[in-house]
């Protein structure tokens, strides 16, 4: 189990940061804004889901790249595992975002570039799983799905990082501004937000490593 060797610090960081984020998220002061009210605290739990998803997808894409250059099946298993955990975080992000949207914007789903981007991301990776399940030969499956994974991730970059910033959006940070700027987020919010993001990313890595061991064992059997 060499995957689980370096996990000690990741577990430690994840647990301590998340405990801090959950306590701070509910208790620390937040700026008082109309409509949002206290629900601005959802920021600490909803946005880290997307950060985690993107981070895990990036790792998955790097592993796919390793597979096509080094031709070892373990890299493909890794990339598959990271993708599945990333999609799980994406679903959590969509669910939490839908509830937040219902109580601030008034409806579960709006035609917003960021929502469209997240929905398309999930569609792309669901079809990635479908692609995998439709091929029976292991090597061929690994090869084709790695190629698709790299291509899909590269096509997501303009969709997620550039397109929402150029069109009008209900989310903050649209219309030319970078994601979160001084006006959207003050020091109080950042003090909990960044630890929360890191904590969820570490949690994502932790879950992926556990799942990786499971998938490797499954492949060996």
């Amino acid at each position: 189990m060499e995957e689980l060797k370096n996990l000690k610090y990741i577990k430690l960081f994840s647990v301590s940061l998340l405990i801090y984020a959950f306590i701070g998220g509910f208790l620390f002061d937040v700026p008082a804004l109309p409509i949002l009210n206290e629900s601005i605290r959802v920021l600490y739990f909803h946005v880290p889901m997307w950060f985690t998803m993107i981070f895990l997808l990036l790792i998955s894409c790097i592993n796919s790249f390793y597979f096509i250059s080094r031709k070892k099946i373990i890299y493909d298993t890794k990339s598959y595992t990271y993708t599945s955990v990333a999609v799980f975080f994406g679903f959590l992000g969509i669910l939490s975002g839908m509830i937040w949207a219902k109580f601030t914007w008034g409806s579960f789903w709006t035609n917003d570039p960021k929502l469209n981007g997240s929905a398309i991301t999930l569609l792309i990776y669901l079809s990635y799983f479908l692609l995998r399940s439709s091929i029976s030969d292991e090597i061929k499956k690994a090869k084709i799905s790695s190629v698709y994974n790299i291509f899909a991730f590269a096509m997501l970059i303009p969709l997620i990082f550039i397109l929402p910033r150029m069109t009008d959006s209900l989310h903050p940070g649209s219309g030319g501004n970078p994601g979160f700027n001084v006006y959207d987020m003050n020091a109080q919010l950042r003090m909990v937000f960044y630890p929360s993001v890191l904590g969820f990313i570490f949690l994502g890595i932790w879950i992926s490593k556990l799942k990786l061991v499971l998938n490797v064992l499954k492949n060996d059997n």
Binding site: G25, E38, S39, L92, I99, W100
Partner: peptide, 21 residues
């Protein structure tokens, strides 16, 4: 001040992670 929305979201995320584990 919509604090229950925050609780609901936090619960959904926690329950989701627990179910996955």
């Amino acid at each position: 001040g919509k604090i229950y929305v925050v609780i609901l979201v936090a619960l959904i995320i926690l329950i989701g992670i627990f179910l996955y584990l």
